[in-house]
Design a protein around this nucleic acid. Structure first.
Lengths: 261, 261
DNA sequence: CGAATAGTGTCTATCAGACAATATGAG
DNA sequence: CTCATATTGTCTGATAGACACTATTCG
């Protein structure tokens, strides 16, 4: 492309700057999953659900031997979101159910390789994908840890503990303020399942009258609807219980919350 | 620092990589302010408040002559937050009332100068600071625009229109979900002032019974308290009205919102 | 008294929150 | 019949939402 002369001059002046530039811009991904564990009971029961995060044991410098988030460097022909999507696919083989930018981590010295500004994303991935990944890969050691393990017990590389803590806060917030729970659930689900998903991500969420409240018109705020067949008869499922439970599905409506109303 | 031999080797191997690295990581700042405009009325009135954003007219390539966000490149001895804080101080002389990370902008080609990944912040600054800045500076042309002007009427440089749109969405969300309104208000304020601030940032916030609701114990959610003197007598102010209005102050409590309760 | 804002009275349908009670269907 | 989950009954006090009404002070 031909440029007017003075623009070229200005550009040359700019290019001559001697400031140091970053040595890389990676995207690191906090991959969350909800694991389901069958419970041994007499009758049918809801599985236990636990929020877990996928980590990879580093094989090379820096932080060799330590657990860290999966990630990789961005290229100049892609946005950081595309970098994250590419890494997610490379790591899991799927695009996942959700991928969202979290924040930037740029403290000087955070990466011994140089001036490396990292961009953290978080993703939601189906349990099966990560389990398959865990079993199949012999090149890398992959672990699925609970949040408590990741934050309190493991010695993580880089500032990845901070990143996971931030991601955990963010997903807890989104769980309560948006309908992101749908990303952890099948299209149609029972209210107990929904409640359980919420509790798995936000343990101190307590709503003893959950079903009562969610089915009363106002609190529901138009986020859910009962599933009905073509004749308008409500459909229920007894997959997890003896007594069949009404199935619900999310609507596209995301309510606007406010502390002032 | 002496390193074990194999770590040095690994480091050398890493350094030999030939990937392109970014040409810079600037922080761009969306500086918001609430302007107050006196109204000509017979009696005392609340001033009109308007949310505005500060822009600078670029003097050099690229986008010379266009309006753009203030900002500057990060250095390798500071975090991006520190970069933003430094730029904010350089631009306004103050640290402002709020500075918060917004997001990253990394689309390839967004900056003709090269591979430049920009980090947007938004700041809240007192009106007087920006007005003084606007008057004093002869090196740069500074403008204070309403959101509508910035988004719909101006031809902005870079992807700064997107950034401002994102910042506007974010501040609207924070206005409703957090007590960030306090950053726009004096320590003690009347409920009309609070309502007005909210409306200035979120024009479609409608709460005809605002005072009623905010003073009923549950809705208040412990975010506000009445100002009282040492004898417990409520204090009111008639700065903006004939009839004195009760003063309130924010508590430190930030309620947790949820669509499920 | 008029202007402009602050705040209360009143009414009704709905909701929250608590807890007990009943329903369902497999084993 | 029991278990584990699903769902309804019932009650009280609080709230939302609407709208009219009164209060305060200055000029």
């Amino acid at each position: 492309m031909v440029m007017p002369m003075n623009e070229q001059d200005e550009q040359k002046k700019y290019d001559a700057k001697k400031y140091r530039t970053p040595d890389g811009a990676p995207a690191d991904i906090v991959m969350f999953t909800l694991t389901k564990k069958e419970r041994k009971t007499v009758t049918k029961t809801l599985p236990l659900r636990e929020l877990r995060v996928m980590l990879i044991r580093r094989r090379s410098w820096p932080f060799a031997g330590k657990w860290a988030l999966p990630g990789g460097f961005s290229r100049d022909d892609e946005s950081l979101y595309e970098t994250a999507l590419r890494e997610l696919k490379e790591e899991t083989g799927v695009v996942g159910r959700h991928l969202e930018y979290l924040s930037v981590y740029s403290d000087p010295g955070r990466d011994p390789r140089g001036w490396i500004i990292s961009h953290a994303f978080f993703a939601l991935v189906e349990e099966e994908v990560l389990e398959k990944r865990q079993a199949a890969d012999d090149a890398e050691e992959v672990g699925l840890f609970t949040i408590e393990e990741a934050l309190d017990e493991l010695d993580l590389g880089f500032d990845h503990r901070d990143i996971i803590a931030d991601a955990y806060r963010r997903i807890q917030e989104k769980m309560l303020k948006t309908t992101i729970a749908r990303k952890f659930l099948p299209q149609e689900f029972t209210l107990s399942e929904l409640y359980q998903v919420i509790k798995a991500v936000v343990p101190d969420f307590e709503e003893p009258n959950f079903i009562r409240k969610i089915t009363s018109t106002r609190s529901r705020k138009g986020i859910l609807e009962e599933v009905r067949d073509e004749n308008g008869v409500p459909i229920s499922s007894n997959q997890y219980s003896q007594r069949p439970a009404q199935l619900y599905r999310f609507l596209d409506n995301v309510p606007r919350l406010s502390i002032y109303s």
